[in-house]
Amino acid sequence: MNNMKKSITLVGLLALLFTISSFTSNPASVQDGGDDIIGIWEPSNGKARVKIEKIGSKYYGKIVWLREPIDPATSKPKVDKNNEDEKMRNVPLRGYRMLKDFTYDEASKEWTDGTIYDPESGSLYNCVITMKDDVLNIRGYVGVKALGRTDTWKRLKLKKKN
């Protein structure tokens, strides 16, 4: 009788463990570490705010706020006037995707294979992003990563609109 009770308890325990493990191993319930980058960020110069979002499997960042949204030369909203394609020079900088095509490398904890666009010069750089304590290290480079420049971006915690 005692043996039977033990068996029932064991089966019950196993069933409970199975239930718990099936919950924790469900892929849908596991958050992708790459998604930690999603949010609104401010570069060190404070001139802009960039919203990073995920589209498909890649990460993109677009300018959502500019400290000086108006171009003093034209008295109109700033546009991508340095774009190599003349027909795309009217695209407003507010809303512009300056970070493109980043994928998250789980092993190195880096967002790689992306590019960063500097609208002030019209230059496009390869870019790799790392994150520590809600600070992004954005390293732009041409060709060799070691010869690049790193900027730090801080996360903005915006209040919800009522």
């Binding site: 589209i55 498909g56 499997s57 890649k58 993109y60 394609d85 795309m88 695209v91 995707r97 493109k100 095509d101 590019t115």
Partner: peptide
């Protein structure tokens, strides 16, 4: 436009 393996372009 973009795809999984090619960069986004205006």
């Amino acid at each position: 436009v973009f795809s999984d393996n090619f960069p986004m372009q205006n």
